[in-house]
Design a protein around this nucleic acid. Structure first.
Lengths: 125, 125
DNA sequence: GTGATGTTCAACCGTTCGGTTGAACATGCC
DNA sequence: GGCATGTTCAACCGAACGGTTGAACATCAC
């Protein structure tokens, strides 16, 4: 598997699963970073465009993007001068699964939820 | 609604939803605290018993429990000398819902997913 | 080459975090 | 009362966090 793909899955080399949860949850524990993820849900964006709506220096946003990237929640690809940021939602999967071990409704209705997914999803998952 | 119930739902007074996500995710970003939550999944526990498996001072565990409590993830009730800790999994609900906005399969089928939740959940939400 | 643009680096700053220690506070037992 | 037990408080420590600034680095346009 290519290194980038690993990082996109939160499987940074030398990072065990617990440490991956650490970095993912820590990355999510900041409103600026959650807002960035929400923006990237719409479309890929350049760093400057990500920074635009925030009242904060470009360097600060660059740091936030670094944290999101190290957590595997986004990937960054340089094309010419501009660095494009892309959401990697698969990195949330392990964290989501961990959480679903606790939620009452998820626990109770997990089977129904999986039946729901199977019925609603296209086959390419 | 009683204050304790509000705290159990992560609705601490004066804490808006974004701040609630901050504290919940921050609380989850530590392996000791995640382990504690896992232990409380089995049963309610006294503070001393929570601390027993960790190579760490009791005061440190007490702080961790305070963080989990302020995030609404547990409640603590004093009975005599001992303080009992109880898991409050409902506090994970908002965070879980927020995350499910990002998973690829969930994103595509979010409307259907919400219909699913509405049909499967009890009415007391 | 020159200059403007996009991004990151390096150093710094104040605050928070995760841990320690020792003392304090409550409560139950004799 | 006196003492052991369960828990938290207060002060401290080093490290990490979230932000700033100014300089540096790449790349594109002319």
């Amino acid at each position: 598997m290519p290194v980038d793909a690993c990082r996109a899955l939160g499987l940074n080399s030398g990072m065990d699963k617990a440490h991956a949860l650490d970095t993912v949850f820590a990355a999510l524990a900041d409103p600026t970073r959650r807002a960035i993820l929400g923006m990237l849900l719409e479309d890929d964006m350049a760093v400057t465009d990500v920074a635009e709506p925030f009242e904060m220096s470009l360097a600060a946003i660059s740091k936030h993007l670094g944290i999101l990237s190290r957590a595997g929640l986004i990937t960054q690809e340089r094309r010419g001068r501009v660095v494009w940021c892309k959401l990697e939602p698969d990195a949330l999967r392990d964290a989501s699964i961990w959480m679903q071990g606790f939620g009452q409704f998820e626990a109770v209705h997990l089977d129904a939820f999986e039946r729901f997914l199977q019925s609603e999803l296209p086959d390419d998952t």
